[in-house]
Computed example of a mutant assay.
Amino acid sequence: MIDFGFDKLALIGAVALIVIGPEKLPRVARTVGHLMGKAQRYVADVKAEVNRSIELEELKKMKTQFEDAARDVEKNVHAEVQQASSEINSTWNSIASSPDAAPADAWHAGSTLAEPPLDYKPPKKNWRVKRGAVPQWYRHRHGVRAKALSGAARVARFRPPRAS
C-alpha cells in the first residue's frame, strides 16, 4: 500500500484542519476511519478467498493423485489375483487330466483331490431349541430342576395325601 510517514500524516492533518475546519474535522475523521476499516476488511476478505481457492485447487490435485494411486493399486491387485487364479486352474487341470488321477469314488477312499459326493448334506440344527451346556443325564442325576414351580404348585406337589 501507500507508505505514509509521520511527516506526511501531519501535513495531511494540517491541510484538512484548514480546509474542513475545526468543527467538522472530528466527524470527517470518524467517517474516513470507518471507510478505511471497510476497505481493509474488504481487502482481507479478498485475500482469504484467494487463499481458500488456492488451497481448494491443491486439495483437488491431491485428491486426483490419491485416486490415481488407488486405481493403480486396484489394478495391480486385480492382475495378481487373475494370475494366481490362472496358475491354480492350470495346476488343477494338469492334475485332473493326468493318467494316474484318482477315480470319481476317491472321495470315499479318503482322497482330497476329488469333489465331495452329491448326496452329502450337512446336519440340520434346530436353532429354536434351547440347548444348555450341562447334559440332561447330569441334571437328572444331581437333581437340577429344569422347570421352576410356583409356590402353590410346590405345596400341592408335596402335600401329604388326605385320609378319608
Score class of each variant (00 low, 15 high):
63 K>H: 12
87 E>S: 07
60 K>L: 11
110 G>R: 02
131 R>H: 11
25 L>T: 07
136 Q>P: 00
79 A>C: 05
72 D>G: 04
48 A>G: 02
84 A>D: 06
57 E>A: 13
22 P>K: 03
71 R>D: 11
34 H>L: 08
8 K>N: 10
73 V>G: 08
38 K>Y: 04
128 R>F: 08
15 V>K: 05
149 L>T: 06
5 G>A: 05
7 D>N: 05
69 A>T: 09
66 F>Y: 14
101 A>H: 07
44 A>S: 07
150 S>W: 14
67 E>W: 10
159 R>G: 07
106 A>C: 13
91 T>G: 03
100 D>K: 06
70 A>S: 09
60 K>T: 05
102 A>W: 08
141 R>W: 10
106 A>N: 08
105 D>I: 02
103 P>Q: 12
163 A>Q: 12
45 D>I: 00
52 R>P: 01
52 R>A: 14
22 P>G: 07
152 A>W: 14
77 V>P: 00
61 K>P: 01
120 Y>D: 00
116 P>L: 05
143 G>C: 08
83 Q>H: 05
34 H>S: 06
116 P>A: 07
52 R>V: 08
42 Y>E: 03
106 A>L: 02
34 H>T: 04
152 A>N: 11
24 K>N: 15
4 F>L: 03
22 P>L: 01
84 A>K: 12
51 N>F: 15
15 V>T: 06
38 K>D: 02
110 G>S: 05
131 R>D: 01
160 P>E: 14
52 R>E: 14
157 R>M: 15
125 K>V: 09
29 A>K: 04
5 G>P: 01
86 S>K: 06
2 I>R: 12
127 W>M: 10
154 R>C: 09
9 L>V: 11
146 A>Q: 13
132 G>C: 06
121 K>F: 15
3 D>E: 15
112 T>Y: 11
117 P>V: 06
100 D>V: 11
53 S>G: 00
97 S>W: 01
59 L>V: 01
121 K>W: 13
51 N>I: 12
97 S>M: 09
68 D>M: 10
40 Q>M: 04
115 E>M: 03
84 A>L: 08
19 V>M: 07
88 I>A: 13
114 A>D: 09
114 A>W: 07
81 V>F: 15
20 I>W: 08
57 E>K: 11
127 W>L: 10
101 A>G: 04
77 V>H: 09
96 A>S: 11
27 R>V: 10
144 V>G: 00
132 G>F: 12
115 E>I: 02
9 L>P: 00
95 I>R: 03
118 L>K: 05
146 A>K: 08
45 D>W: 10
43 V>N: 05
136 Q>S: 10
2 I>M: 04
91 T>I: 08
131 R>Y: 12
12 I>G: 02
39 A>N: 03
126 N>M: 03
69 A>P: 09
136 Q>C: 04
53 S>F: 07
92 W>G: 03
63 K>G: 05
102 A>V: 04
55 E>K: 09
35 L>M: 10
17 L>T: 10
163 A>L: 13
41 R>W: 06
103 P>R: 13
41 R>S: 09
